[in-house]
Design a protein around this nucleic acid. Structure first.
Lengths: 186, 186, 186, 186
DNA sequence: AATGAATGAGGGTTCATTCAT
DNA sequence: TATGAATGAACCCTCATTCAT
């Protein structure tokens, strides 16, 4: 049948399915079969385009992370025109969590990166992007902490059962955005 | 051979091995066989004491998380007598990372909890403990953010390749510990 | 704890549980654990009283078959006072099927006996009993066939989905009970 | 090694082996390994072609039953040209028992069908076929009983140790084939 | 170039049986 | 005597991967 006459498209199709599969069941539970079924391609395709399942997973994680990073451009835009930075940060975080699947993937990447060094650049992509933006609005020194604060909040939010403490987040962000007081520089 | 006749000890032995196994290869890659080998017990033991691998993993994660939480008591003590809170926080974080295996486990728990609701209480244990301590030193409002900041930092540290920006962390912590400025309350 | 001080009773208790277990899941699916649980005795008891699972199963099947055979005494009584033998046979068959579990066991025994010669005497118990009764009412020559007819009917009834052809059964029984016609002896 | 490239043949090969395996050790004792070994195919093949062992067993039982049913066509032919129906019936029964393995399978199917409703149609195939033939020669009313008689005889013959009472069978068959007497219709 | 049949290693789990207690 | 802890063989099944087609 040799379905599509477009190798690149099929390759992408498989990656996309892999991303969804990972989001659904986690890195440790994806299989060739699941991905192939999700993508609607023959089983053989998956190994034809990717030598190894690990390779395919890695490609998927890179894809996911790139998508996340791309989302940061919206953050940059909105923050640039914002007149209430803390509120905007909080709002962006909230909306980020709306796509739970995507947010989850971000942490899958991080965890996978711990044991798979070749994934570290991908994992770093999001963090670096976030830091870059934070640094732009909180200054080079505070940017690092602001990024960590947001990252920690997002992770905690993913496993939290009840409502989130958005006010606590806002307060923290505000604090890191405000001009430093005398003591701190000591 | 029917070895040792001490069920409770053997149970604990298996859990301990499971914790180590998870730290080594991750939640998604532990197997009965690996755990049994690590514990030095026959394969059958693992299923004799735990109906299911999932049960065993859950027990192990709970164990790991409890251990982490217990470690927070040291934090409380040191912070109580500290004369430079930010520096002490930074120092505690650094030492926390020294036991990379343990730190890693903490995030395994979090990620696993996302898909396994029965693990959420365990995952929450660490976060709640950390928040409690932070609240004690940063006040109820800032405590939430301080905990998120630390958590985010630790996660990022785990996958970072180069040296850590301890100064950035210190600055952030200091900022959240310092009395708030006028603007922030807006 | 050494529960009962009555080994014989406990032995019987286990056999009874085994009979029920076999009726529930079939000879091929009984386990020590299931029987022990059903009997409410410790796992060890089952192997303490019976060297082997096969031995226990055999004992249970013998028990079941003995029970069936005992039931035939009722047949004898009712048939003796019956004024409509075919109708009584049909009625007895119908009532026999009421205890589906027991009827099923009878065929478990037969099938098991095919491969386990030591069970043949047990399996034969029912058939011989049935034949004896049939011979009493249909004569020595026709008794054999009457027993086969009833046995075949009961087996078919066990797996039939819809209503049973009781009238067909009655006609057959009547035919075998009636004095033979001239032709038949040819 | 990836042997033969003929899926349909291999599928059939596995079913055939399963039939033999069941005949040898019974439904409750067949395993993937045994079937694979008997078929001379790798273990993985069995699960590749049949999602579940139960599925494979069901397929095998259907096959066996279909084979039995096909054998009934010989019965029909021989009976049609017979000048001594009872003797022919007896002869057919005797020859049926010659293939003990096949006869046994028939009862395996019946017993399995009791607990596995999806097997009932298969089990019914043989019974319905037998009834159809019997009805053709004994009339619609007596056919049911004749089929039951034969079925019961065959089952009893399978577990009988000594010689079979062929004369008893003949007498019974003859009786059911003969025109009914006055009494019977009462 | 593309596919699905084929394979075997390995995983989770069950369980008869043994045996220290 | 009686028990439940302990064991390891064997089970069913999944799957990455290979490869004939």
């Amino acid at each position: 049948m040799t379905a599509r006459r477009d190798p690149e498209a099929r390759r992408q199709q498989i990656i996309t399915a892999a991303v969804r599969a990972i989001a659904e069941v986690g890195v440790g539970n994806v299989t060739h079969r699941r991905i192939a079924a999700l993508a609607g391609v023959p089983l053989g395709s998956t190994t034809y385009y990717f030598p190894t399942l690990d390779d395919l997973v890695a490609a998927a994680l890179r894809e996911a992370t790139e998508y996340s990073r791309a989302g940061l451009e919206v953050w940059a835009e909105e923050l640039t025109v914002s007149r209430d930075l803390p509120a905007t940060f909080v709002d962006l975080a909230r909306r980020y969590l709306d796509d739970r699947e995507q947010a989850l993937l971000e942490y899958e990447v991080c965890l996978a990166a711990v044991r798979a060094p070749e994934l570290r650049p991908a994992a770093q992509l999001w963090i670096d992007g976030l830091r870059g933006i934070c640094a732009r609005f909180a200054g080079p020194e505070r940017g690092f902490a602001l990024a960590a604060l947001l990252d920690g909040f997002l992770l905690q939010a993913l496993i939290a059962e009840g409502p989130l403490d958005m006010e606590g987040l806002r307060a923290g962000v505000a604090s890191l955005l405000s001009p430093r007081t005398a003591e701190e520089s000591t």
